[in-house]
Design a protein around this nucleic acid. Sequence first.
DNA 1: CTAGGGTTAG
Length: 790
Amino acid sequence: MLLCAIPRIGKTVRFLVNLSSSCAVRTADFIEESNTHHCNYVELQRRMQNYATSGHFSKALEALNSMRNVHGKPTVYDYNALMHCYFKSRNVLLEVLVEVYLGMKRFGPVPNASTFNTLLNGMLSLGNLKDAFFIAEEMCGSGFVPSFSLLSKTLKKSLEVGSLDNSLGVFELMLRLEYFPTEHTFNLLISMLIKAGMFRAAYFVFSVLQGKGYFCSVYSYNLILWAFCRSGQICTALELFCLMKKKGVVQNVCSYSALVYGFGREGLEKDLFHCLDVMQSDGCKPNVRTYTIIIKFLCDAGRIEKALEYLGRMERKGCDPDLITYNVILRELCHQDRVGEISELVQVIDQKGFAPNPYTFAAFAGGMLKVGKIGIAQKLLLDVISRGCCTLDVAVYNIYFNCLCCENRSREALSLLKSMTEGGFLPSSVSYNTILKGFCRENSIEEALELFDRFEWVTNGPDVVSFNTILSAACKQCKSSVIQRILFRMECEGVELNVVSSMCLIREMYSQGLKPDGYTYGSLISGLCREGRISVALQLRDQMLGNGLTPGCQPDEVTFEILNQAMSKVLEIATPTSLTFQEDQTFSQMDALVSREFLESVENNFICWHPARQVDAAKVDTICDSVLLLTSICCFNEYCVLHGIQPKFSCPYTSEQNGVSECKHRHITETGLSMLFHSGAPMYLWTEAFHTAVIVINNQPTPLLNHRSPYEILHGAPPAYSSLRAFGCLCYIHISNPHPAAPPTAPDGHQSAVKYYTRRPKTKAAPSANLPSSSPQPSVPSDQEAPIDL
DNA sequence: CTAGGGTTAG
């Protein structure tokens, strides 16, 4: 937390210099005076404390300085007393205290444990958590140990005020001291990280505690379980689910519901219902939320009959549907325009005593709008709005704006939005995007672009949907200058293309008979990879190479960068979790699904695309002989290549929202790593935590060599291979293709799809290639240059 | 203590 101190140091020095010179003068006067009054040390102490307690800091400091007359004074205790008393006063300026502390450090007396405790306590009671953390770190650095309760308090308060950075810092410090936060605090930290989109960090925090033998309750597990399920990592969620069993944590209805949700999200219906069966046979009764998840899954698939069947079933089992359940059904009935059933359902809702809420109106109006019944949707909304019987939210208004825009009344929608905003309404990006679309369609793209700049975007600016709205209109109208402008702006604002953008552009380019350049290809591939459209991305890459646009022939750094990022994203998203497995498949068969083409594309493209991005295995060896974790290719690049080899491991505290390019790195200690390593947690789990692409383990067979996959456990299959394993001195790259091209082969097809790499001998130190070469690079690395020997 | 619902781009 030196950050706290660094900007201050200059100021501090000046402050201390000024203070000491002015004090010197005043002290001189004082001494003369005191000679006559024979003011002794005890008196000075009393004076100083009085001044400090009443908040007269500089006077107190004067008194403290006067003690210098007495040999060996002031002592550290005097300084501590000054701080202690000053904290008791009302208007405490923390800056001056930090400055005094820094002065003590520099000129003495050396701060002792009490100094730190006084400061820490004071900072805490004043709610200055950053400084509290700074002091705690300083305390440790000086060889003292802050108490558990003080650190725990700091963590709790940091969480309360929502300061993520501080919370994580304090948490790390606590772990270093082997302090475990209380369960409630721990759960708060996890939820906070998940809510901030820092899912990997949340999981990392969780794994580290696990690895240290900390007992996590079912509530903590459920937080992580849900996060996995919500982010499309059902396979990992299953691993975790099994780990819970192994650790003796009894799953509850919330745990099972997470899996049901996760399966539904991936469209794995068979698994979803199997999970429901397992849940019930485990003696866990589905509740209203479980049923609502199932009903929503069925509704989203358009299977309203089956959904209604489950509605009946839940009622028969004594589980009453609530308004959320009904809203879900209402929405789908509206989408299917089932007028009769809609009114029946509305009656049921009424009979059961539920008052429609904004979700109900959104379900109804949104559904009506979708089937083209704009009038009905609009009438209902106007009715609700004018009656004011229910507080509506932005989503409902957005539907109303959409109604207006669909009726070619986008100007009206805009002026309504304006007047509402003046009345205190806070539009969302959806509101703006809706109106943008209306303007593109009805008026002109140019006008829409003007709005683009005038809107007061709630977040930092327009999002990818905003850009795509304009982009798609521009593509449809073949306005290439607008397309250029939009692409340029997206780049400036750091908004990345997604599959919608890519598809618009591809369509446009083909219709124009245009040939994209390397840069455009890079953007497109990047966008596609992010969306998990690996096969399309690979096709595009082939097309690009076919067009003679090999990146090696175009020493354009930006292109390299984009293509590299694109391939990193391939690696990032191609986790085994995106595979869809058959019920009777063992893990070895699943491994066989790994596409050879895919692996090769990673090897041939990622590593060779950019000479500066070559993985220097020889350097890597020097990092650590026993365990090496490369935390995703992206981090690896940034850490080992761009910043030189760091003698520490890094863990990506990645904000999922910001994507891999904004990966922040934090160090974990080797101890932390080896704790995790020996924790007995399935390796798959903790590699996921590190988002590991490559693992090198030196002659350390892991305890996981034969662990059963959760899928196998859930389906009662015999134990087979682990999806991920490491052997001594072998490096295993596990990349699964979410769109496997190769059909599953026999169980020992394992060997054919998975490659083992031995480490490169240490003597072959490759030169560090930090500059992009201007000469074309061979598309396949020679043995000498190969980062990892086969 | 943890969990389920509505609105925008192709």
